[in-house]
Design a protein around this nucleic acid. Sequence first.
DNA 1: GCTTGATCTCAAGCTAGCTTGAGGTTGCAT
DNA 2: ATGCAACCTCAAGCTAGCTTGAGATCAAGC
Lengths: 146, 146
Amino acid sequence: MHRNDLIPIGTLSRRTGLAVSAIRYYEDRGLVTSIRTGGNQRRFLRSDIRRLSFVQIAQKLGLGLAEIERELAALPRGRTPNVMDWQKISRSLRKEIDSRIQLLTRTRNKLDECIGCGCLSLERCALYNKEDRASAAGPGPRYVLD
Amino acid sequence: MHRNDLIPIGTLSRRTGLAVSAIRYYEDRGLVTSIRTGGNQRRFLRSDIRRLSFVQIAQKLGLGLAEIERELAALPRGRTPNVMDWQKISRSLRKEIDSRIQLLTRTRNKLDECIGCGCLSLERCALYNKEDRASAAGPGPRYVLD
DNA sequence: GCTTGATCTCAAGCTAGCTTGAGGTTGCAT
DNA sequence: ATGCAACCTCAAGCTAGCTTGAGATCAAGC
């Protein structure tokens, strides 16, 4: 509503903790959009602070930028997201966390069995049969939660 | 128990599900070692099947190759690892899983609070508010991430 | 008006973790 | 002894997710 609803990239950087270069990269990737001033400088909406915060949280959960973009697609276009919008998308994220916890728990249980028999690599080991590998595939190197 | 204990890279590939090129890469990285035949072909120990299986499991948990190498350092050198060795290293992996589950659970709880107040997009939300304890750590959604 | 810091574009570089391709050799079955 | 799959090395390429650098422009305080 006021003029100061538009913030330059440096401010967005400070408010999100993201590097300016990262924000520009995200814009290229379509994760966030900006308008330009007469002098061709980017101006973002304040609500983009939250948008990029969401990106960071989702990333920590192991989602790739493409997946995050898909999640963000649930947010309205042309209107600043409201409480309901964020609730909806947050719940989606919660489901993601739940499934990851489940996967880890299953893996842990299987590892427990394998500690018992010391097998770890035997064909019959529950941890390592083909069937299981398919279902457990996904996270990859991005799945680093510090 | 003589020649049979040494396997070529293709066999190791089939037994682990890893690509031949990946195994060679791991050898370059020092995750596994081999001896050479007179014709310069690699020969691995049967126990390397288990070693590489461990690598894959650890990778799924989000560990980088460098970290995995550190874990593997716990295995004996010059002797084929026995059940006890693998039990020990498996337990180490189990701890890793536990801590990841804990982190996810904490994150989920915080996200729940935010769904409860519908705040993920509001300035006063504990997740994003710069003025509360989250801001002490600096900008960005640290409260959820840390 | 001047200076300084913030911003711009575009291209290239970087880490991780591999794969792919070219060109050549080995080893085992027939 | 021959054929061919499996093996070898080395270099380059690929995806993801950015960063860095060059060279230029913009915006704001004094």
